[in-house]
Nucleic acid binder design. Structure first.
Length: 427
RNA sequence: GGAGAGGUGGCUGAGUGGUUGAAAGCGGCGGUCUUGAAAACCGUUGAGCGUUUGCGCGUUCCGGGGGUUCGAAUCCCUCCCUCUCCGCCA
């Protein structure tokens, strides 16, 4: 959500930013609506002042017992009523109209975000690890099925397309990966572990920006809950409607949760395998910070996610997203893309975003310095650290041996009963 | 799912439809006193919006939304949340 005052201060810059985000100009409409709203407020308040003074007088007169005088005053004030009702209704209507218009506009990019329309315009920031050189590399679903522990047919029978059943060591590997990531972030990087609800109300999903515009990407229960598409929703909304003491910032939260996405706009894409599922597990990192710390925190957050890849020994690159490829709530985003030999390409495995005060406004999440009177909106960041399902995919494709076994990276071995590889199960 | 009780400022907790943004206490902050601290005493202490160069002025907010009324924390409707009992259940 944008600050209407900033729109008023610099309408040209605002519209220019919107153009970068592939949205039409909106400043003129917004300002006109806000002007009307302010006029309605002034009008309503003037009427309220008159009414309040008269009502106060009625109270005093009644106290003296002069009922006749009171009746006369009451008759006078009654005439104000319809005008006041109308003015208040107008104010409410315009306020709702303005908020509705603001709520569907994407966040504006930071100055160092490259212009561009899609992923082809993203910039590579750095690349880590060796890439390519694997002969006859297999895709993860081939490897998983060869191991006898990745079953798409069983999942289809249970739930349909875009689900998977993992068995035995692969089931455990998913758990091992998640636990390793969570342990790393909590013990070395100061994130507090959270176990949040997976079903949330409208307000929460609005706060992080998935609503009202992207409801078709989400699953909804019959009684009106939304299944969270990412723990970003719950972790970020932990500070909703609160005034946090600045001394308590930054707040850093981590959670491992299933994530649910309808993938409505992705028909035909990544239809095979575990890359794009309706349900997947993800370790999410969220930081709540003061405005001045936002950009540094994005670098820190990204480094935390990168460290997971480094310790797993996976090759990857860091991409700075262009304005056109960023998510709705983001001002700046780094994607981490892991190398997948089976696909002979890089695939997104983490997305780390700085959202400025965009979500803070939507959530009414504020902070205050101890000695200050005024409050400010918190700045928020989120990033995957990492997507667990895709991490499992990457391990399979990068660590399959010629004999069909898959090596387990050292950091995961303790989580896998001390073993160093996964072998096919035939049964 | 059934029955009932409640939601008031950072916290506890009063509140009769009429100068109540709201008693009192605690906590916080400032001051007096003190070498310093404590105690005591005095003062102060919510958020948002509109308007103003500024001091300020106005307005809204007592869980959320709507209504009745000249006037609502107080009455009505509705939703949310908390608690108690019963039922069910991991």
């Amino acid at each position: 959500m944008h600050d209407i005052n900033l729109v008023r201060e610099n309408p040209e810059a605002f519209d220019k930013a919107l153009r970068q985000r592939k949205a039409g100009p909106a400043a003129a409409t917004l300002i006109a609506c806000d002007d009307a709203r302010r006029a309605a407020i002034a009008k309503a308040q003037a009427l309220q002042t008159t009414r309040n003074e008269a009502s106060k007088k009625i109270g005093q007169v009644k106290g003296t017992g002069d009922d006749a005088a009171a009746e006369e005053l009451m008759a006078q004030v009654a005439e104000l009523k319809s005008a006041l009702l109308e003015a208040e209704g107008e104010e409410r209507k315009l306020k709702a109209q303005l908020e509705k218009a603001l709520s569907v506009l994407p966040n504006i990019p930071l100055a160092d975000v490259p212009e561009g329309v899609d992923e082809d315009d993203n910039q590579e920031v750095r690349q880590i690890g060796e890439v390519g050189g694997v002969n006859a590399a297999m895709q993860h679903f081939e490897i998983g099925e060869e191991l006898g522990q990745m079953d798409f047919e069983a999942a289809a029978a249970l739930s349909g397309a875009r689900f998977v059943v993992l068995r035995d060591d692969l089931a455990r590997l998913e758990r091992a990966l998640g636990n390793f990531m969570l342990d790393l972030h909590t013990s070395e990087y100061g994130y507090r572990e959270i176990n949040p609800p997976l079903l949330v109300r409208d307000d929460a999903v609005f706060g992080t920006g998935q609503l009202p515009k992207f409801s078709e990407d989400l699953f909804r229960t019959e009684n009106g809950y939304w299944l969270t598409p990412t723990a970003e929703v719950t972790l970020t909304n932990l500070v909703r409607d609160q005034i946090t003491n600045a001394a308590d910032l930054p707040l850093r939260f981590a959670a491992m949760t299933p994530c649910f996405r309808s993938e409505a706009g992705a028909a035909g894409r990544d239809t095979r395998g575990m890359i794009r599922q309706h349900q997947f597990s993800k370790v999410e990192l969220v930081s709540i910070v003061e405005p001045d710390d936002g950009e540094d925190e994005l670098e820190r957050l990204t480094a935390c996610a990168e460290e997971v890849l480094k310790r797993l020994g996976l090759s990857y690159r860091v991409m700075l997203l262009c304005a056109g490829d960023m998510g709705f709530s983001a001002r700046k985003t780094y994607d981490l893309e892991v190398w997948l030999p089976g696909q002979n390409s890089y695939r997104e495995i983490s997305s780390c975003s700085y959202c400025g005060d965009f979500q803070g406004r939507r959530m009414n999440a504020r902070f205050r310095h101890g000695d200050e009177k005024s409050t400010h909106f918190v700045h928020t960041l989120n990033g995957s650290g990492l997507a667990v399902g895709r991490s499992l995919v990457a391990l399979l494709e990068n660590y399959r041996q010629e004999d069909g076994s898959v090596l387990i990276p050292e950091v995961l071995q303790a989580y896998m009963g001390g073993r160093n590889k996964i072998e096919p199960i035939t049964r």
